[in-house]
Amino acid sequence: MSQGHKRQNYLRNLMLGTVAAGLLGIFGGAAPAWAAAKGSKVILLTVSQSCEYCALHERAFLKAAAADGINVEVKINNFDAGQQASQVDQAVAEHPDAIVVWPADASAIVPSLRRIKKAGIPLVVTNSMPNPKYQSLWNIYTGPDDLGNGQQAGEAMIQGLKAKGYTGNTDIFVILGVLGTPPQINRLDGFTGVLKAKAPMVKIDGSQPGNWDQTQATDAAAALFTQYGAHIKGVYAEADNMLAGVIVAAQRAGLDPKTLVLVGSNCSVEGVNAITAGTQYATVLQSPIDDGNYAAQAVADLLDGKSVPKTRFLPHPTITAENVAMCNAAIGR
């Protein structure tokens, strides 16, 4: 498939995803009592600056919000749910025109969302969606669909195994993010769900947490390569930086990464480099720039009283060597 064709698919998926979410979701509706976006004060409650994705998200949000004339106050915490609850208390005390929150923990944020709702402050949740049964607590959610992300990775794994001629019983292992975090749980659920449904012959021999960290992922993969050795034909890491650790561990174990089907996620610089070098088969795009822009657009539309879809997911196309340039463009490199 040509690169132009892939780009068309990407745009089509983006449009279809947005339209579908709009049709399926409950519309935010007009909000005549709220301040207009221009000149309004919005508080962005976000997470760690030490994570590249988070920093790019914040930068994109601030740029887009500034273009809409929104004054943004940022409160950052280090993925600490307790601290974020205090920050929400503080944000409510400031009576802003709207709040945008990236939950440090998608479950622990629910009581805080209840407080925001009680205070009557318009709310956009970004990046991590709490359980949809509480969706009456927020006006709009924008961000990734981690289940869909994992499903795309599963599809890429099946496609890669077929392309490299691994048919029949095939062994793979998985490197996970921080256990218990929503992206870790949902991506794994999506990945295993697709394999179970479409490729039951592919067996996940083991999994270890790499905690979203390359060094820890290298150690975890080294242990799994030692345990299962030459039987392993593929690895799924829930993030590209962890997959970079898997590639190092494979080389140390005397395996050629190019013979393996290595699938990551996020389209970070490690993934782009490895796909270009041919050591990584595929990744799944999740652009922090789009993530930040979607949230800023949502809060501006909400304050301007426009009808906006309740849920707006980021597109998650599969990226391989054929369309890796799409990754660069979406992340702004």
């Binding site: 280090n78 993925f79 600490d80 749910a81 307790g82 923990d105 479950s107 629910v110």
Partner: peptide, 17 residues
Amino acid sequence: LISLSLATASATLDSTT
């Protein structure tokens, strides 16, 4: 008390606590 307040508990706590 914080877990009841957040209606949630997880095995990870901020390392700076």
